[in-house]
Write a protein that binds this DNA or RNA. Structure first.
Lengths: 142, 142
DNA sequence: ATCCAGATTGTATTTATTACAAACAAGGTT
DNA sequence: AACCTTGTTTGTAATAAATACAATCTGGAT
């Protein structure tokens, strides 16, 4: 796993101390691309860091969100989820299976960006556009 | 408030019994266009129906969602919210003030619909497109 | 007027998250 | 390298949102 230096750099840039807990949480979040919940992260990170406290997961995630290293994601159905990918992207979501995947589409972003440059919304200043594409996945998860 | 007959018709069409609780919940949800939480609804509906149980709010909302009379809405920040408007629409959301408003834009819907007809997503069948427009409201709530 | 499936209530639980104080450790300073 | 300060982690306890469930009640069909 050679991504650790990259994680350390991220944490440093955010002005955060490098702790095993933070590195492990970020690493797990980057590895699991499934938008895990705090609970799932706790279970997974606990394997590496035995004495881990659930509170640390919440603290760590809150800190990461504060610093913009991680984003919160919420569906209509369940609890808060977290996403280490901070580049602009959208989500595919199937309510039946509660499965969520990332969706990148620069062409779409371009089109939307142009659209909202042209069409102003009265009294509202758009800073970010997020799509949730609802539907069904045709195949099983990888 | 002359929308009650309309509510009764809705409930009937959904095969639900007409109870004061259901009528009041739906009425309140239609009047408050603020995507209230279950708690907010409980507080508001309690004024009309004194002995109301919070459980009834949850039951009623679940039933309404089941029947498609109401939609769940979730933000990144807080608990579940509910929306009586089931016509297709999007949301304007300001994370700082936690304020959310509806946004209707048939032209946008048209454009997106055309886009996803043309551009298929591998392994995913889109049934609904929801935008969350993040940003700031320039004026106070009405 | 009667009846029963479905609705409501209230209590008890569960689950997700936060508050807080004590113990600890990262990393700059000497 | 030992020290110190500040930020971090831990654990317990509290809060809040939502659900389960059994008992009671009621809408509306007959």
């Amino acid at each position: 796993m050679k991504i650790i230096p990259e994680i350390i750099q991220k944490l440093n840039e955010a002005g955060l101390k490098i702790t095993p807990q933070r590195v492990a949480v970020m690493q797990t979040l980057m590895r699991l691309r499934s938008h895990p919940t705090a609970e799932e992260l706790f279970a997974e990170v606990s394997r590496t860091i035995p004495g881990l406290s659930p509170t640390t997961i919440y603290n760590t995630l809150d800190t990461f969100v504060d610093k913009g290293l991680v984003k919160r994601v919420k569906t209509d159905m369940d609890v808060m989820r977290y996403d280490a990918i901070t580049e602009h992207h959208h989500h595919l979501y199937c309510a039946i299976s509660d499965r969520m995947e990332d969706y990148f589409d620069p062409e779409l972003d371009q089109m939307l960006s142009e659209y909202f440059t042209r069409k102003k919304i009265e009294g509202f200043n758009v800073t970010d556009i997020r799509l949730q594409l609802m539907g069904d996945f045709e195949n099983k998860p990888k």
